[in-house]
Simulated assay, not measured.
Amino acid sequence: MWLNFGIKDLIDILLVAFFLYQTYKLMKGSGTIAIFSGIVSFLVVWILVSQVLEMRLMGAILDKFISFGFIVLVILFQDEIRRFLFALGSHRGWKKFTNLFSKKEEQGSSHKYIAPVSLACMNMARKKTGALIVIQQDMDLTVYAHTGEIFNADVNARLIENIFFKNSPLHDGAMIIADNRIKAAGCILPVPQHAELPKELGLRHRSGLGMSLETDALVIIVSEERGKISVAHSGKLAVNVSAEELHEILSGEREVVNFS
């Protein structure tokens, strides 16, 4: 068997290892790692019984579980599968490839929101006004926008501050910015059940982290208690972000590094 081992077999093994590693990361981020471990254990037992020991009766029973198990897995992990496929399609390599065919003027115009958003966040942090701002990237956020009040307004620093003013009816929800426009405010974001966050970080940070796990959006959180700015992206949360760091993150010059 080993004499027939070639470069194609090596590529096959590497692809399987990469797939299992990415699946492990996905399950770990969503808090379903225990289920993933159980599935892997079941597959090992199935291979051992059916292929190695060749137990026909037990193997036939496990085969039935495997045939129906695929449908069950799709139902149980539909959100994780959707995020995995989206992450695969929106990988940076694909983005760099598509950016080769885009005009520089179009790329520059997509960052018009950075200055007003940065100014508003710094002002709200100084005044200790809580805020939750979601910046849409590639994934459409219409589903989340419809949980709040729909807007179609220019991104303006004063407007952002007024929406998150303590007496405003929309200050408790999240604002969604898409295509250089304020798309919605007062929106409800998903809250992860297994996120490990410091005790001093509240519901806004948990919601922002949950949104970054569900989508590819960039989420800015302004703490009402501490007057600090945090940014969540791809399941990572950077806390105590400065004005310069916020501007670099929004412009794509700096990546979000998880808190330590």
Score class of each variant (00 low, 15 high):
residue 169 P to C: 13
residue 67 S to H: 08
residue 176 I to S: 01
residue 165 F to S: 12
residue 169 P to R: 15
residue 188 I to H: 05
residue 60 A to S: 07
residue 92 R to H: 07
residue 124 M to Q: 03
residue 132 L to D: 01
residue 61 I to G: 05
residue 88 L to K: 05
residue 106 E to Q: 11
residue 87 A to R: 12
residue 98 T to R: 13
residue 111 H to S: 10
residue 114 I to T: 10
residue 120 A to D: 03
residue 121 C to F: 08
residue 125 A to G: 09
residue 91 H to W: 05
residue 156 N to R: 09
residue 140 D to S: 14
residue 131 A to F: 06
residue 86 F to R: 02
residue 185 A to G: 12
residue 73 L to Y: 06
residue 164 F to S: 05
residue 61 I to A: 14
residue 154 D to Q: 09
residue 111 H to T: 10
residue 87 A to E: 11
residue 71 I to L: 12
residue 71 I to A: 10
residue 162 N to L: 15
residue 88 L to N: 08
residue 112 K to I: 04
residue 69 G to S: 06
residue 132 L to G: 03
residue 74 V to N: 00
residue 101 F to D: 02
residue 114 I to Y: 02
residue 108 G to H: 09
residue 107 Q to A: 10
residue 127 K to E: 14
residue 187 C to K: 06
residue 72 V to Y: 07
residue 97 F to A: 15
residue 81 I to K: 00
residue 133 I to Q: 00
residue 113 Y to K: 06
residue 169 P to D: 14
residue 145 A to Q: 02
residue 163 I to R: 10
residue 155 V to H: 02
residue 72 V to W: 06
residue 153 A to S: 11
residue 153 A to V: 14
residue 165 F to R: 11
residue 78 Q to K: 04
residue 162 N to H: 12
residue 118 S to R: 07
residue 80 E to A: 14
residue 174 A to D: 00
residue 144 Y to D: 01
residue 131 A to Q: 03
residue 113 Y to R: 04
residue 99 N to T: 12
residue 101 F to E: 01
residue 145 A to L: 03
residue 139 M to Q: 15
residue 125 A to Q: 07
residue 178 A to R: 07
residue 62 L to N: 01
residue 95 K to H: 08
residue 159 L to D: 02
residue 80 E to P: 01
residue 184 A to Y: 04
residue 102 S to F: 09
residue 143 V to S: 15
residue 171 H to C: 10
residue 166 K to G: 01
residue 95 K to P: 02
residue 140 D to N: 15
residue 93 G to T: 11
residue 88 L to V: 08
residue 158 R to P: 00
